[in-house]
Write a protein that binds this DNA or RNA. Structure first.
Lengths: 215, 215
DNA sequence: ATATAGTTTAACCAAATGGTTAATATTTGT
DNA sequence: ACAAATATTAACCATTTGGTTAAACTATAT
């Protein structure tokens, strides 16, 4: 019909590749996969979400497996580079911890299902992490490690294994979102109250970590 | 055949209800559901795992949904009462934190997939937590809250919101297991090395938490 | 304008899946 | 020993699901 032709020139003029079929599928797939997981998602549902015929999914991505992979890598690439950037920045350790927790919590508040999705699917298929580690922008904690060790020498912080500290920072930042439904139960809070807790956290977690390690 | 009859009296004599069909199904279902999740699990696979006909699953549990519910409640009942017991114990706060982290890490080392499973499925269906909260032995942090508030008055610990502290303890204890595949990637460790990290953690996490809050 | 290449759809298909049934075997109470 | 109740199985069934195909539609280059 004429609507399609109209859409075409409108897109051409706006230069909106965002609304092209291929990225439309990817975005729809992202929504569905993140909500239902690889095994729970249905190709038909993704097609409906994207407002196109199911055959298009296979036309652009060949199989459910490959479409899922595209979604997963896309989701992971939202998490990892941010982590890398902050961890490798040239700022003092305590400031770095503040920056990291604050900016990561902001991110997760905006995309609360991404960490859950990534961790869930990585548990389903742990071998998949090998592919990721090999990639260019996979986070590396070497710089952070040197920094922590120097702080220990300086007696700025108590002796601690860098890996443990790193795990602690990630745990305190990410877990409250992954475990939200459970934690809302334990703390008897509703959505709004829990959200307020998370807001409070954004400013307080860093201090908790710093208190734990400073001499 | 005679083997079945033999099995019957042997079970009767040993009083091993464990090997009865019904609990056999539950255990098989537990293994499969925990590994693959509700949507990824297949009824046939559960039947195979239990070594019985698929119709038996419906004979004893009616539907996949109900079988899953039985498994979930069973899994959850392994997590929750332990938590309740330690949190409500009549011991000083710092000792309580040590007891909790140590015993919980021991538990999770033995059953590493249980927290992941519970949290994953609770994310899939957050409303399910309502059922749980209503139940008798659902963890309650009131006692713990009183204790924390008293410690703050005493100036034994710095002021902190009890809910935040509770979330922090859980995060530091559970997240390293839920996020294991991802964290093994970030820290560039293999299974054995990561296991060693977890062993070290068992004695060190409590100190991390205590350092963070003590005045 | 027209042939060529790229895009989209409706209709299909085979395999997988949760669930049922009717017949058989086993256990139990008497 | 035997009838009633319970447990178990093989064969089915309807629906769902990922994936395919052939035809129609649209865009592009000459």
């Amino acid at each position: 019909m004429s609507t399609k032709w109209l859409n075409y020139i409108v897109n051409k003029m706006k230069k909106t590749k965002d609304t092209s079929t291929e990225t439309g599928i990817l975005n729809a797939a992202k929504r569905v996969f993140i909500k239902k997981g690889m095994t729970g998602a249905r190709m038909q549902e993704i097609a409906d979400e994207a407002g196109i015929n199911k055959a298009m999914l296979h036309y652009y991505y060949r199989s459910k497996e490959l479409l899922f992979e595209a979604v997963f890598k896309n989701a992971f690439s939202m998490l990892a580079p941010k982590l890398n950037k902050v961890m490798n920045a040239d700022v003092p350790l305590f400031k770095k911890i503040e920056d990291f927790t604050s900016s990561y919590i902001s991110f997760v508040v905006k995309h609360p299902y991404i960490p859950t999705f990534v961790i869930q699917e990585l548990n389903r298929n742990p071998d998949f992490v090998k592919n990721l580690v090999a990639e260019e922008h996979f986070p590396n904690i070497e710089v952070f490690k040197k920094q922590v060790e120097k702080c220990i020498e300086n007696k700025t912080i108590k002796p601690i294994n860098t890996e443990q500290l790193f795990i602690n920072i990630l745990a305190l930042t990410i877990f409250p979102f992954i475990g939200a439904p459970l934690l809302m139960g334990f703390t008897r809070t509703n959505k709004k109250q829990y959200k307020d807790l998370m807001k409070q956290r954004k400013t307080e977690v860093a201090q908790f970590i710093i208190n734990a390690i400073k001499v």
